[in-house]
């Protein structure tokens, strides 16, 4: 996670060829689809583009998307830090198993990530009857959407933090403890500053993914317009409504959010890098 401190070379020899190759590939694989989204969104002019942000259903979808991310991301960040602290700073049996468990959600198909919650909390799932009696709604409501999002993004922050914490070891923390600092103080003053860029990277990635999650949320949402539709689902709904400009406008809003987040991450790393590598 240490951002670049080494002076980057001016490209020589193979350099320009490699750069051209890399840029061509990225333009083809990532740039072209992105350009398609933006071009379609603006195909009927700016008025049609901005029209989407006047529709109550779209605004509700934006709001729900933000709420979901605002719940899912901090929880996953807390999990990442707790998992990092236990795994990197202590030795215990079954550590490999725990690590594998944390990695596991990355290899689950989003379709499955949604389905499993239906199996657990759906009306005919494990806890369905109890929830029905208690009058608690999980599936097809906010909690279900949040659970689906959390499962899809749970590994992201932990994966950023754990390797870095492990690499850093616990010498600094031990020294602070010897000097009489309490656990909480050590964590706040020593550990957290050491991993903050990894944490930030993870949080931004997790946030971008949480806002963009489609497959799992689609299974858990119930698709109620203005109530349980997130922005990615609203994109699909608009597309199916023959509102192609609206669909691509909403999509480019999501893409824009992602790009801004990712560029912000990269800029922050540049600012923070010299200090974090000491």
């Amino acid at each position: 996670m240490t951002a670049s401190t080494r002076a980057l070379r001016r490209a020589t020899g193979f350099g320009p060829v490699l750069i051209a190759l890399a840029l061509f590939w990225l333009a083809l694989i990532i740039g072209a689809p992105l350009a398609t989204v933006v071009a379609e969104a603006w195909s009927k002019g700016s008025e049609a583009f901005f029209n989407i942000f006047k529709q109550p259903d779209a605004l509700a979808a934006i709001r729900l998307t933000i709420i979901v991310a605002a719940i899912a991301v901090p929880l996953n960040a807390a999990f990442g830090l707790a998992a990092g602290w236990s795994i990197a700073k202590f030795e215990f049996r079954g550590k490999a198993l725990l690590l594998a468990l944390i990695d596991l959600p990355l290899s689950i198909s989003p379709v499955i990530s949604g389905l499993v919650w239906v199996l657990v909390f759906g009306a005919r799932g494990w806890f369905g009857p109890i929830l029905d009696v208690a009058g608690v709604k999980i599936i097809f409501a906010l909690p279900g959407i949040v659970l689906g999002t959390i499962l899809v993004t749970v590994s992201l922050i932990a994966r950023e933090i754990i390797p870095l914490m492990a690499e850093q070891g616990s010498d600094e923390e031990l020294a602070a403890t010897t000097l009489g600092a309490g656990g909480w103080t050590v964590f706040r003053r020593v550990t957290l500053p050491n991993v903050r860029w990894a944490l930030l990277h993870g949080v931004l990635l997790c946030n971008a993914r949480a806002m963009g999650e489609f497959g799992a949320v689609s299974v858990l949402s119930g698709h109620i317009r203005g109530l349980t539709e997130t922005l990615p689902l609203h994109v699909e709904a608009l597309y199916n409504d023959y509102d192609f400009v609206g669909a691509f406008a909403a999509a480019s809003l999501l893409a824009g959010l992602a790009v801004v987040t990712l560029i912000a991450k990269s800029a922050l790393e540049r600012v923070g890098a010299p200090r974090s590598t000491t």
């Binding site: 759906g122 005919r124 369905g128 599936i139 119930g222 317009r225």
Partner: peptide
């Protein structure tokens, strides 16, 4: 309130709660 999706998926959603 309106919910739209494929017919079969919607039936399953109702069954699932």
């Amino acid at each position: 309130n309106q919910s739209y999706d494929g017919s079969g998926k919607q039936a399953r959603a109702v069954v699932d709660g």
